[in-house]
Amino acid sequence: MTMSLFLEWMPLLLEAAVHTLKLAVLAYLLAAVAGLFVALGEMSRSATLRRCCRVYIELIRGTPTLTLLFLTYFGLASVNIVLPGFAAAVLALGLHYAAYMAETYRAGIAAVDRGQYDAARAIGMTGAATMRRIILPQSVRVILPPMTNSAISVLKDTSVASLIAAPELMLRANDLASQYYMPMQLYLITGAMYFVMAYPLSLCVRWFEYRAGRGQHRV
């Protein structure tokens, strides 16, 4: 591989990496919001709503991202709802990770002692206020490491969107690899680029876990 080829590829790959980041951020935001609703639904008083949320989580966790991606992209197209690849990828990844986020939120809320909840209710706080001011702030410490792990997973899973031709890093790498027939060089560079994006997040997880561990010891 000559330097000139490398210089030719890099602007194209970097541009695609920006798309990858955009895709990851949008899918992650969708997952974080939708996951919160699913988690709250799972704890609601209505048994039907609880069951629906449970079924959603089990369905999503039992099927590959790829299947959901194909259903949103090709499946919706066959009933005349044609989404661009990028939008379909945001939707599929967001809905997929919402189920994982819901589990994370639930674990975080369950980690707060019930006495905290009872005490808040005893001094007359409403259910919503208890959640917002007592439970959620304490849960954050527990859910931060798994939430960052999900961010890493979403970032890596955006590569799957290349299989529905959504414009992102892996698709650009595939295009260049077949154009120049240098798959080894291109996929290694691409791998390094994903590493540069994901490794800082992985360091964050370590730091959060270290912080959370320290908090536990102090108590």
Binding site: I152, K156, S162, A173, Y194, Y199, S202
Partner: peptide, 13 residues
């Protein structure tokens, strides 16, 4: 290395 790179990229390599 293996946790920060998508498995699809690893597979293609």
């Amino acid at each position: 290395l293996f946790r920060a790179v998508p498995v699809l990229t690893q597979l293609f390599i």
